[in-house]
Each structure stands twice: as structure tokens, then as C-alpha cells.
Nucleic acid binder design. Structure first.
Length: 562
RNA sequence: UGGGGAGUGGUGUAGUUGGUAACACGCCUGACUCUGGAUCAGGAGUUCGUAGGUUCGAGUCCUACCUCCCCAGCCA
């Protein structure tokens, strides 16, 4: 945050401040980020992480990382590892506070027994289908299960035997005994435990009954003395149940607060759908640079700072909304502009021969590393008679607003010389294969002693010393602003996948200094955008670069308008 | 048709004792520039979902209505 900026507040921080003022939790603030380890974290989670950890940090509290691992059939160690890596990479530290809901299985079991003893929970023999039928509908009340009024002794015995594994999966459930006519469906005797004879990634085969979300989450918060349990809007209906369990148990009163989840244009943020993209090979994996996952953004070249800044700017509210993906892009540009070294790289090469430049001669020219940061210094760039320039920087018949190279026109080669195009060489197919130019030796370094101005400066790479590379250009993964919008019912969101979201250019020419680029380092290819080494596919001697984001491009805008 | 939420410029948000709406992104001008980048200066755009009401005065209070989102997993 720049000095002078006003600190951003949101309704959550206001609640915390009021609680602090009233001394509600003894002046203590504890939050938690509770991912289920069934997928990789994405930018939507980053919003939650920034909020959870951010609030704790702002008010001198603590934020726990707690894995909500109550469903062994969907959860894996791989996800636990990636989640920890991503949270750390984003810049947050949970210190000693790493927990698992599965740590509390024993306590949860005891509390369940307590509720059974008090007649507030019972073992139900209804099948899943029957439970659904008995639940009623949104407008019709449910009906009570015939097993609802079993004796405490019978319930205790049955529950114990459920735990011992005497019944097959799905044969019985433990349900809270609340109100089958409640207008809030969550109160119609919610299932607390189901039988699942699955090996848990942490508790192994110790358990064959596993707690449901509603029964596990609030109690876990309470055990950890979480003061502000922040979650997304779809859990609003669960809040009364969250509080009900805590109240019945008489345990420490954690409270839940809900905010609107993040949506971004041209982006899908649903773990289920992202998993589908991975499983069905629409992308290269969870960390495909086109994915909105933290690992995908990292591989794409986004910085943790830029993601945090983004989360800061979008704010926190309870209104459903969709953020323009352009804001995310703006955040990386702004961050990278300050720190990225500038380099020259020609993505779509066009040969240029400087006819009046001595054959066999090479000179080293000075080039600034970062105009935004004088301390970044400068480097030498080799120049000689035959060069590459960007194909799109030349037009044989330029429209009025095109300032770059054209027959008879003079432009500046960045940090080098003014050149003038004298002729165009084409192949049999009429395709331009080479440009013949002359240079003005007096403009060495890029300035003309006679004060002559030129309308454009273009980048270039010396042919003899060029490093060959593959460069991957990315576009939005979806063609529609709202990927979930389809024109007819028989189409699904996958029909909106952008077939051109990846363009791999294999014949790119880089200046020599780029041979030493290291992964994780954001680099600006002058006039083309910000790029970084691909952490997976790049090899020494065969570099692969990913385009993080383009530079703002006024010409592209003009060209598009026609 | 039950319950729970939300509606402020194109987008996201701020607006906390009611006093004629602000910030960011985007957009448009211009200046400057060896990146059509960056930077700087300026500009357009909202009357606050709708209709009433209270009040000298309402985005802020009241009433009614409209629209959108979420909930009928032994998922989280």
C-alpha cells in the first residue's frame, strides 16, 4: 500500500473492531483457513487466505491452517502438500498452528455420545434415498424417520457398533434430532456421521465412520478457540446449525461470518470443474499456466505480491460479483514493471540485412536493464549486419496510424541505430522473407546528432548470437466472459473452452543475456510483455518461456478498431 | 409457492449519529518518452433496483414491490 493511502476496511474488519471494543473474546482474534485437501488452491482461495491471515495479522491475532479432512474418499496427501506450498508461497505463515479436523475425531465421537445421551441424536436405518424422501422439499415440511424415537440405550449400542464396523457402508447414519418441519433444511435432522469403510490419509483404518461437515467444522473451530470463522455465502444457511451444535454442547462459542466468493471474467473457479479440466486433459495439469490455480499463476509468472495486491483491491462484501480479469492483469503488470529486467526477444523473426554495415563486423552496444530502476544497471548487446526484427513491426503498405518500419521509412533500432528500409525480398509465394535496409552510422546508440526524430523504436536481435527458444503465448482459457453461460441446454461449459488459449512459438530469437534467465524471475521482453522461464519444460540450451501478460498495447487497440 | 442473502458510474468497492455520491480498474484527451510501455495532467460516465412515505433535507429511516444468488449430498 502506498503511503497516504487510506487503510481499506470491510464489514469483517468492522465486526472484529466492534468485538475488540466490547471485549468480546478477551481482546483475542483467531481465524482459520480450512481447505479440504481434495484439489489445488486457486485465486478464489487466495482471496480467503488474504482475508483470514490478513485479519489475524492486522489485529495481532493468529490464523490456523486446518485441513478439513472428513471425507477420505476424496482427499489425498498430494493436495495437502500443494496447499501448504501455495499458502507459504503467497507469503503467509501459520506458525505452529497446523491442524487437521481428523485430529478431533475422538473428541467429536465423545460429543456425539453426549448428544445421544441427551436424546439429541439418534441412529437412523433409513437409506440415502429414504432420507431424501423424508426430508421434504423447499416448500413442504419433512417427515420423521420411524427410527427417530429409539431409546438412548439402543442408540448408544448401535452407534458403538457402527464405529466397530459391524454395518456396511450406508446402512446407518447418526443424525441430530432437531426439527423435520424446520424451514431451514439444515435443521431437518442433519446427518452427523456416515459409515465409510475407507482408509483415511491420516488416521488410516482407525475409523469407519466419518463426521459430516456440519458436525465437524464448528466443533473444530471451537476446539481451536477460533473467534471469527470466515467462510463463503453458501454457508449462510448453515450458520444456525453451526451455532446450534456449539450451544447444545456448551463449548467455546466460535462464530461464523460469510462473504461473497470470488468470480472472475473468462475464468472458472470451481474445484470440481478445474479437476475435470485436469482429468480430461484440457490442460497440462493443475499448474498449467492457463489455470487460475495458485500453482498455475506461479508457473505463468505471477508474483505473490501481485496476487495479494489484487485481493486487496477487490474488497470484501456480501454481494455476488464478477471481477474483470483485466484487474488481475493490471496488478501483475504494475508489480513487474518495477522489478523486471528488460531484454530483447523477437518472437516472429523477420531477417534484416543492413546493406551498408561492414560485413564481418560486430559491436557491443549499451542497453539499460530497467528504466524504472537505475540500480539494475546496463548490459552489452551485440549488433552486426544481419538482424531479426519482429514481423509485425513491418508493413509493406502501412495504414496512417502505423508508425513502425515500412518501405522508405526510418525507425530506430533500440539502443542501436536508425535504419531505413530500402527494399523487400519475397519468395516465390510472395511472402516477405527479408528486408534490405541501410543504417546511419552517426546515430550509434540510438540518437541522431542532427536532432532528427523518428516515430518508432523497435526491438531486434543479432542473428549470429541469437539464442533459440520456444515461447508460449496464452490467452483466456474460455471464450466467454461467463464460461458457464451456454446458448442451449444441451451444451455445457466445456463448449466455451478457448481452442486458441495456447500458442507455442518455436522459432523465437533471444538476445544472449537471456540464456541466463532463471525460473521464477519475471522478465520484460521489450514491447512484447512480461515473460518467465517455464519451470517444467525449460531445459538448459533449450529454453521455454511463458508469457505472463502482454504490455498495454495502444497500437493493438487502434488496429482492432480498424 | 418455504427459508436465507444481495441490489451504488462499464466492472469491483467506499459512503457507520440522514445534509445533495468517492476510490480503483477500464474508457477518452493531451504532455512527455530510445518500450505505441512507464510517468504526468485533464475528461466523460452513477442520483444510489422500483414506487411511495417520513423529513427543511435520504444511498443512509419506514412501507410495498421487482430482480438476482444460495439451500432439498450419507460433499465441503
Amino acid at each position: 500500500m502506498a503511503p497516504g493511502d487510506v487503510k481499506k476496511t470491510n464489514f469483517i474488519s468492522q465486526i472484529i473492531e466492534e468485538d475488540l471494543k466490547s471485549g468480546r473474546n478477551g481482546g483475542r482474534v483467531a481465524t482459520r483457513f480450512p481447505p479440504e485437501p481434495n484439489g489445488y488452491l486457486h485465486i478464489g482461495h487466495a482471496k480467503a487466505i488474504c482475508l483470514d491471515f490478513g485479519m489475524a495479522a492486522e489485529y495481532g491475532g493468529e490464523c490456523h491452517l486446518r485441513f478439513d479432512d472428513t471425507n477420505p474418499v476424496k482427499e489425498e496427501q498430494e493436495y495437502i502438500d500443494s496447499i501448504q506450498e501455495d499458502v507459504r508461497w503467497l507469503g503467509f505463515d501459520w506458525g505452529e498452528h497446523l491442524y487437521y479436523a481428523s485430529n478431533y475425531f475422538d473428541q467429536l465421537y465423545e460429543w456425539a455420545v453426549k448428544l445421544i445421551r441427551e436424546g439429541k441424536a439418534y441412529v437412523d436405518d433409513l437409506t440415502a434415498d429414504e432420507i431424501r424422501e423424508h426430508r421434504g422439499t423447499l416448500t413442504r415440511p419433512g417427515t420423521e424417520s420411524p427410527y427417530r424415537n429409539r431409546s438412548v440405550e439402543e442408540n448408544l449400542d448401535l452407534f458403538e457398533r457402527m464405529r466397530k464396523g459391524e454395518f456396511p457402508d450406508g446402512a446407518k447414519t447418526l443424525r441430530a434430532r432437531i426439527d423435520m418441519e424446520s424451514p431451514n433444511l439444515n435443521f431437518r435432522d442433519p446427518v452427523m456421521y456416515r459409515i465409510l469403510k475407507a482408509t483415511h490419509h491420516r488416521t488410516g483404518d482407525k475409523w469407519c465412520i466419518y463426521p459430516m461437515y456440519d458436525w465437524a467444522h464448528g466443533q473444530s473451530d471451537s476446539i481451536e478457540r477460533i473467534t471469527h470463522s470466515i467462510c463463503t455465502l453458501e454457508f449462510e444457511d448453515h450458520r444456525p446449525l453451526y451455532s446450534w451444535f456449539i450451544e447444545q454442547l456448551g463449548i467455546w462459542p466460535s462464530r461464523q461470518f460469510e462473504f461473497a466468493r470470488l468470480n472472475i471474467t473468462y475464468t472458472i473457479l470451481s474445484k470440481r470443474k478445474l479437476l475435470q479440466l485436469v482429468k480430461e486433459n484440457y490442460v497440462d495439469g493443475w499448474d498449467d499456466p492457463r489455470m487460475p490455480t495458485i500453482s498455475g499463476l506461479r508457473r505463468r509468472g505471477y508474483t505473490p505480491e501481485s496476487i495479494r495486491d489484487f485481493c486487496d483491491r477487490i474488497g470484501v462484501s456480501k454481494a455476488d460479483s464478477t471481477v474483470d480479469v483485466g484487474l488481475l492483469e493490471h496488478c501483475v503488470r504494475e508489480d513487474l514493471n518495477k522489478r523486471a529486467l528488460r531484454r530483447m526477444a523477437v518472437l516472429r523473426p523477420l531477417r534484416v540485412v543492413i546493406e551498408n554495415y561492414p560485413e564481418g563486423q560486430t559491436e557491443q552496444l549499451d542497453a539499460v536493464n530497467n528504466p524504472e530502476d537505475p540500480s539494475a544497471g546496463s548490459r552489452k548487446v551485440p549488433f552486426s549486419r544481419v538482424l531479426y526484427i519482429e514481423r509485425e513491426d513491418f508493413m509493406e503498405e502501412p495504414p496512417k496510424k502505423f508508425f513502425r518500419l515500412a518501405p522508405g521509412r526510418e525507425v530506430r533500432l533500440r539502443y542501436a541505430y536508425f535504419i531505413t528500409c530500402t527494399s523487400v525480398v519475397k519468395n516465390a509465394g510472395g511472402e516477405i522473407v527479408e528486408l534490405r535496409c541501410t543504417y546511419d552510422p552517426a546515430t550509434r546508440g540510438g540518437n541522431s546528432p542532427d536532432g532528427r526524430k523518428v516515430k518508432a523504436t523497435i526491438h531486434w536481435v543479432n542473428t549470429e548470437t541469437a539464442v533459440n527458444a520456444e515461447v508460449r503465448l496464452y490467452d483466456h482459457l474460455f471464450t466467454r466472459e461467463d464460461p458457464n453461460k451456454v446458448d442451449s441446454e444441451d451444451l455445457d461449459w466445456k463448449t466455451n473452452i478457448n481452442p486458441n488459449s495456447l500458442e507455442a512459438l518455436k522459432d523465437c530469437k533471444l538476445e544472449p543475456a537471456l540464456a541466463e534467465a532463471s525460473p521464477g524471475e519475471g522478465i520484460q521482453f521489450e514491447r512484447m510483455g512480461y515473460f518467465c522461464i517455464d519451470s517444467k519444460d525449460s531445459k538448459p540450451g533449450a529454453p521455454v518461456f511463458n508469457r505472463t501478460v502482454t504490455l498495454k498495447d495502444t497500437w493493438a487497440k487502434i488496429a482492432k478498431q480498424g
